[in-house]
Nucleic acid binder design. Structure first.
Lengths: 140, 140
DNA sequence: TTAATTGCAAAGGTTTTGCCGCCGC
DNA sequence: GCGGCGGCAAAACCTTTGCAATTAA
């Protein structure tokens, strides 16, 4: 039985990750668990508000960040806090320091030619970007 | 002679990309061209302001976005506009629709084991993320 | 009981927008 | 001269923070 989880299961999951269990957290995790849409905090808030109209957006932000912190969920996008620019337009990738946010270049040497898509992928892919995360020479 | 470009060269570059030439644009492009720091708009603003104290931050934002739009520079990070979350924590990558920002999953099938770093890379890499960009089934 | 969590509202920070005068072409 | 661009300030967002009240354990 993999398919469905009832509330009891979700409670267990939160506990596994060392999280205190609240109705808000259950609702937020369930909402995220039952969608493939990779929703933003705002979208999750709108969703959860249907069942718990008193929930606040701030709580959704705090909770998602907490989930991410303990590894219960993934987060897409926040490689750097703000947009960063680069005059070098040769194909290359970047490595971002998780501590000081400095960025280094990685020459194409990486992989790349190996980026092949699974059969039946419905997206039409234009380009890709590999972002590595780690420590820069100064922070490590 | 590859190494240095004088002002005349920068003017030519802007024209090549169909951009109108102004002192602000020259200064912004030069500032970005002469650094490896992958600066943010704010940092570029501070830099350019030394030579052109009257320049405005809004102009820097508009200009960088214009440069990016025509392909004169690269932008690191803005895969999605806001943070997006995912309850699936199995290792996998994402493909983001450049038009509607919807996100699809790409199973590990991609490459990955092939991500090898160039010799002498000074960063200590912890993990990496492959982000593909393209059109979703609905937008293509 | 005690520490963590929630809700609310305010603040912080980045980026966008509108408008008008100015400048490149 | 015309359309694009720059400066300025306001606005729009997204996200974080502070605090008092509430709740989980």
């Amino acid at each position: 039985m993999e398919g469905k989880r009832d509330d009891k299961d979700f409670i267990a999951v939160l506990r596994e990750y060392g999280l205190q269990v609240t109705y808000q957290r259950l609702a937020i995790y369930q909402a995220l668990y039952h969608t493939k849409e990779h929703p933003s905090a705002e979208v999750i808030y709108q969703q959860v508000k249907k069942r718990f109209p008193m929930i606040s957006l701030g709580t959704v932000y705090k909770t998602l960040e907490r989930f991410y912190e303990v590894g219960l969920i993934q987060k897409v996008s926040p490689v750097t806090e703000v947009a960063r620019y680069d005059a070098n337009i040769d194909p290359h990738h970047h490595v971002v320091c998780v501590k000081c946010q400095s960025i280094g270049d990685i020459d194409q040497v990486v992989s790349d030619q190996k980026i092949t898509l699974p059969e039946g992928n419905p997206f039409q892919v234009l380009r890709h970007q590999v972002v590595l995360q780690g420590y820069c020479p100064h922070c490590k």
